[in-house]
Simulated assay, not measured.
Amino acid sequence: MGASEWDYYVPYQEDLNAALQQLRHEVFEAGDYYWVNGGDWRPEAEREPRPQSLEELWADELVQEAGTHSILDIFRVVGPDDTPDRNTVEPVKAEEARNLLGSGKLTRAHGKDFDVFPRSRWVGRCAVLHDDEGNPQEIYFWGHSGD
């Protein structure tokens, strides 16, 4: 199947990990993800209902291999001194934003240029986006995951 790109805008909150966990919960509850065991590739009689919890979802070996092709494939936001690895999201640092886009306070208008930020499969990125007065307004999560 290959990886899928995904992106989400959420209201700003200072705790990026709390914002991620809230987003994951909302995406799971909405069923807005690829459910490998309910896919059209299986005969209808073999399709399984969606899991009732994130824990149940991730206990499935096929999900662990194929992912959900959504933010559900990301479990935590790494800290400034941590090295991002599989199933994490790395925040854009102000210095990185200044070096690549010329501004330490990103806005939605910068979004079209976010491809300049290094990323890899199964590792997402996030950026705090500001309003015209420079106040934090929302958080943008993006990445690609799944197999």
Rank of each mutant, 00 (worst) to 15 (best):
Glu95Gln: 11
Asp132His: 03
Asp82Val: 09
Gly38Ile: 07
Asp32Pro: 11
Val123Trp: 01
Asn37Thr: 04
Ser145Gly: 12
Asp73Cys: 02
Thr88Leu: 07
Gly31Asn: 10
Asn87Gln: 14
Ile71Lys: 06
Gly104Ile: 04
Trp142Gln: 11
Trp142Gly: 11
Asn17Phe: 00
Arg42Cys: 04
Ser120Thr: 14
Leu101Ser: 07
Val89Tyr: 11
Glu48Tyr: 07
Asp113Pro: 01
Arg108Lys: 09
Val77Gly: 13
Asp131Glu: 13
Lys112Ile: 14
His25Glu: 15
Glu56Phe: 01
Pro84Ser: 12
Ser4Trp: 04
Val116Gly: 00
Gly31Cys: 10
Val92Leu: 04
Val27Ser: 08
Ala18Asn: 06
Asp60Ser: 03
Gly111Phe: 01
Asp85Lys: 12
His110Glu: 14
Val116Ala: 00
Leu72His: 06
Leu101Ile: 12
Pro84Arg: 15
Leu57Phe: 04
His144Lys: 11
Ala97Phe: 05
Leu54Tyr: 03
Gly104Met: 05
Val36Phe: 08
His130Asp: 04
Ser103Met: 02
Arg76Gly: 02
Glu56Met: 05
Gly38Thr: 09
Trp35Ser: 06
Asp32Val: 06
Pro51Thr: 06
Arg50Ile: 03
Tyr12Asp: 02
Asp82Ser: 13
Glu90Thr: 03
Glu56Ala: 15
Asn87Lys: 11
Asn87Ser: 14
Leu20Lys: 13
Glu5His: 11
Trp6Tyr: 11
Gly31Met: 12
Asp85Gln: 14
Asp60Glu: 09
His69Cys: 06
Pro84Tyr: 13
Glu55Gly: 15
Arg47Glu: 04
Ala19Gly: 11
Arg86Gly: 10
His69Leu: 02
Gln64Leu: 05
Ala45Asn: 08
His144Ile: 05
Leu101Pro: 07
Arg98Asn: 14
Gly31Glu: 10
Asp40Gln: 15
Pro136Glu: 01
Gly39Cys: 10
Thr83Ser: 15
Lys105Thr: 15
Asp81Ser: 13
Ser53Ala: 09
Trp142Lys: 08
Leu16Glu: 10
Gly143Tyr: 02
Gly67Asn: 02
Trp142Arg: 07
Gly146Asp: 07
Asp15Gly: 00
Ala45Glu: 14
Arg108His: 06
His69Trp: 07
Gln22His: 08
Pro43Ile: 05
Trp35Phe: 12
Gly104Tyr: 02
Gly39Ala: 12
Gln13Cys: 04
Gly67Glu: 00
Ser4Arg: 12
Pro136Ser: 03
Gly2Trp: 10
Arg24Pro: 13
Gly38Asp: 05
Ala19Cys: 14
Leu100Ala: 04
Arg76Ala: 07
Pro118Ile: 01
Val116Leu: 01
His144Asp: 09
Val27Trp: 05
Gln22Asn: 08
Asp85Ile: 09
Val128Gly: 08
Glu56Lys: 06
Ser103Val: 08
Arg108Ile: 04
Val92Thr: 07
Ala59Asn: 13
Asp60Ile: 09
Val10Arg: 01
Pro80His: 03
Thr83Lys: 11
Leu106Met: 06
Asn17Asp: 14
Asp7Cys: 11
Glu61Asn: 01
Gln22Leu: 11
Asn135Arg: 13
Glu90Leu: 02
Arg50Pro: 07
Ser70Met: 08
Phe117Arg: 06
Glu29Phe: 00
Tyr9Ala: 08
Asp15Ala: 00
Pro91Met: 13
Glu65His: 07
Ala45Ser: 09
Ser70Asp: 11
Gly111Tyr: 02
Glu5Val: 09
Tyr33His: 12
Pro91Trp: 10
Gly143Thr: 06
Leu106Cys: 04
Arg76Trp: 05
Ala19Phe: 03
Ile74Tyr: 00
Tyr33Ala: 12
